[in-house]
Design a protein around this nucleic acid. Structure first.
Length: 754
DNA sequence: CCGACTACTGTTTTT
DNA sequence: CAGTAGTCGG
């Protein structure tokens, strides 16, 4: 930290006004550059309030904020994630986009619930056509700033498949529902701000002027919406400093546009570019590995990573019989490292491609008495009991929030069942009021018996009372009052089983989280404390609670690892199907395939001193044991092969097409040998009827990659095919029509060719 | 209207 | 395997 800046770093720090693009390789001191740059700007007399630093994760924001504080104690630079920044803006001008400032933020589960509801309303079969698929497509479109109307227009120009037809129906209704329920999802948070910036020039100018200097971290991860926000804020004062690394772009699947980096040069005049290629983080052996690996990506500016660091220990690959052995040995090694080699637990990190792999390591680590922290996808706030209580808080703050309302209206059970809910929904729709308002007027719903009215009245009364209390009561008071009123804890208190104790403990953890939040808030703000607390809970994930100073081994996915560094890193499960992930290979898209390589690149470059790669001969997955095939990326790195693994010579970069084909073949082999033949009964097929299902396994009728003929569309290639009971479909891509169509095998007009 | 049981399905990655 | 959605009987 105390070392001086390099010439290149200096250049980025000293650059004053005008757009600046910092292309920073891993470990090249990017965060240092940003924080020093902020400090330098302030030194130059730029008021701290006019500086805005935007990041993607809370973790990065917090890290940056604390480092700025270290350099410039007490300064009020705004460091925030894109989402939080947008949320704050929308709290100020909610009516610009048709919201009220009490809007709540939906998580993925809420989104799915809403999509499912809408699909049902439209008469779609949500069993065979998964709401998740619809949501994914819609979200992808919205990330790309495609509106519902544009989506429909494109579809009508015959681009798209059956699923898109459903999206056309759901999309506008979904957005309309968001507004009428006074809620936003993660995408809408950004989109509304884009809307303000494009349609309200006076607001845009005001913000542009307020934030004269903007710094964006991980620029390669910006999606179209974020990009527009950025440009919108930097029109009159184009003092944008974007830092990023195209080789670390790993969020393409959620709409990130790494080519925003190229656009940056196009959209801003006189961009100054600074390249930081020197890696100060890792040993030469590790940098070598990373450099050779990433060189295999074809769509990339060639770049050579260098380091002044010593060679260090070779990067070693080992292979174990199965996942449990793998986990056990890694755990034992970590324990040993701490006991004998003067390491501390926090020096170690274990990465994996999918969260599912964390479990075996967790058990192994606790068996060896090693403390660990997991940055898992399932957050504290997603646990049922927590979601219940948060649901209550959300309804109290924003009674229009239907996802929250339907979750909690009958929890704990108060005999408000599906039928009652449906009657309220219909009544509310008729009178154009929210469901909560409808519930309040349940005496006007003739079909409701007094037996179902009574609990409804009690419920609405409870919510109203607590809502009124928010004006002068704290969040923790609210939660405790709520617990008392609905006697919530008794749901879990009865037995002395572990799960119930966990749940009760979680509830108390929520209360203490609320207390902590209140303390942080201080005495000055009283009224909106509930709103702030809810915002915190919806925009914070478990990953953000990972704390490297906690004296524990860190377990996380490769995605979550970005931006971090550890002296010793283990990367698990270097197997075909896992990395590159089966799904990234299956869709045959070179873009997603190369993203897998970048992901491994990110993982590898987290290590400072030691990097250990492991794989197994057998992997138990979804209850099935399968033998594995080594990841093809392994032969792209100079490794030391341990324990009798046949040495595969390091290859030189072949053409991308060949690599892809290789990967696909391997994947097919790996699975076909263990595939049980698809047995499809006639009854199952009838059940299907015109349903569209996601691809899961291969059907023996139409192997993936084979050519088929369709009477109408002509020749096509099978993209995916499902067997399995209850669903049997084939998805075919017709190159000449630019069309992807899914067929139900029972009445499938397809003919195999050749 | 509620709870219990059974089928089924699938997770890449996250704000 | 494990979590969930959907079904059935009281």
């Amino acid at each position: 930290m105390s070392q001086s800046l390099t010439v290149a770093q200096q250049a980025a720090v000293e650059h004053f006004e005008g757009p600046l693009l910092v292309l920073a390789g891993p470990g090249s001191g990017k965060t240092r550059v940003i924080t020093h740059r902020i400090a330098r700007l302030i030194e130059r007399g730029v008021p701290a309030e006019t500086i805005l630093a935007l990041t993607f994760t809370n973790k990065a924001a917090r890290e940056m904020a604390s480092r700025v504080q270290l350099l410039m104690p007490g300064c009020r630079v705004q460091v925030s994630t894109f989402h939080r920044f947008c949320s704050r803006l929308l709290r100020i001008w909610p009516e610009d986009v048709g919201l009220k400032s009490s809007f709540s933020i939906l998580d993925t589960t809420d989104q799915l619930r809403l999509v499912r509801q809408i699909m049902k309303d439209c008469g779609y079969d949500t069993v065979h056509l998964e709401p998740r698929r619809i949501l994914n497509r819609m979200s992808r479109a919205r990330n790309d700033l495609v509106t519902a109307e544009t989506f429909r227009r494109r579809y009508e120009q015959r681009v798209g498949d059956l699923v898109d037809a459903v999206v056309c129906d759901v999309f506008p209704r979904y957005e309309q529902q968001l507004l009428s329920q006074n809620v936003v999802d993660f995408d809408a948070l950004l989109l509304h701000v884009v809307d303000i910036l494009t349609n309200a020039p006076e607001r845009r100018e005001c913000l542009d002027e307020q934030f004269r200097f903007i710094l964006v971290d991980e620029y390669q991860d910006t999606n179209q919406a974020q990009y527009r926000i950025l440009t919108g804020l930097s029109h009159s004062f184009p003092n944008v400093c974007a830092t990023g690394d195209p080789d670390q772009s790993i969020y393409g699947w959620r709409g990130a546009r790494p080519d925003n980096i190229a656009h940056f040069e196009r959209d801003f005049d006189g961009v100054k570019i600074v390249m930081l290629d020197e890696n100060f983080r890792s040993s030469a052996a590790i940098v070598d590995c990373a450099d050779q690996l990433i060189a295999f990506n074809t769509r990339r500016h060639p770049r050579k990573l260098t380091t002044p660091n010593p060679q260090g220990a070779p990067v070693r690959l080992r292979r174990f019989t199965n996942g449990d052995t793998e986990a056990d040995i890694v755990a034992a090694e970590i324990a040993h490292g701490v006991r004998e080699n003067n390491r501390c637990y926090a020096d170690f990190a274990v990465f994996y491609r999918v969260n599912a792999l964390s479990r075996s390591i967790e058990t192994a680590l606790s068996r060896h008495g090693v403390p660990y922290q997991v940055a898992a996808g399932v957050s504290f706030y997603e646990r049922a009991e927590i979601r219940d209580l948060i649901g209550y808080l959300r309804v109290i703050e924003n009674p229009a929030d239907e996802s929250a309302l339907t979750r909690i209206i009958n929890r704990p059970a108060r005999t408000i069942g599906e039928k009652t809910l449906l009657k309220i929904r219909n009544f509310s729709a008729q009178h154009c009021i929210t469901m909560f308002a409808g519930a309040c007027r349940c005496d006007e719903i003739p079909s409701l018996t007094s037996r179902s009215r009574r609990p409804l009245e009690a419920f609405t009364d409870l919510i109203r009372r607590l809502h009124d209390a928010t004006a002068h009561k704290s969040v923790s008071w609210l939660i405790e009052q709520l617990l008392a009123e609905i006697d919530y804890l008794s749901l879990w208190r009865d037995h002395d089983n572990e799960i119930d104790q966990d749940r009760a403990a979680n509830v108390h953890e929520l209360i203490s989280a609320a207390r902590q939040y209140e303390q942080l808030l201080g005495e000055d703000e009283d009224g909106r404390s509930l709103q702030g607390f809810l915002e915190l809970t919806s925009l914070t994930s478990e990953v953000d609670n990972v704390d490297q100073s906690r004296g524990a081994v860190t377990l996380m996915t490769m995605h979550a690892a970005k931006g971090l560094e550890f002296p010793v890193v283990y990367v698990l499960g270097l197997e075909s199907g896992l990395i590159p992930h089966e799904r990234a290979v299956r869709d045959g898209n070179p873009v997603s395939f190369e993203e897998e390589r970048r992901l491994l690149f990110v993982a590898v470059t987290r290590a400072q001193e030691e990097l250990h790669l492991t794989q197994t001969y057998e992997r138990t997955f979804q209850g099935q044991r399968r033998s594995t095939i080594p990841s093809m990326f392994l032969q792209e790195m100079p490794l030391e092969y341990g324990d009798g693994i046949p040495q595969t010579p390091c290859v030189t970069a072949p053409k991308l097409d060949e690599q892809l084909q290789q990967a696909r073949q391997r994947y097919e082999i790996a699975h076909s040998s263990h595939q049980k033949p698809a047995v499809i009964s006639g009854a199952d097929l009838l059940k299907q009827h015109e349903a569209v299902s996601p691809a899961t396994d291969q059907s023996s009728l139409f192997p993936v990659g084979s050519t088929v003929r369709h009477p109408q569309y002509g020749r096509g290639t099978v993209v995916s095919a499902t067997g399995g009971t209850g669903r049997a479909t084939v998805t075919v891509h017709f190159e000449s029509q630019n069309l992807e169509q899914t067929f139900v095998a029972s009445h499938c007009p397809l003919q195999p060719v050749g």
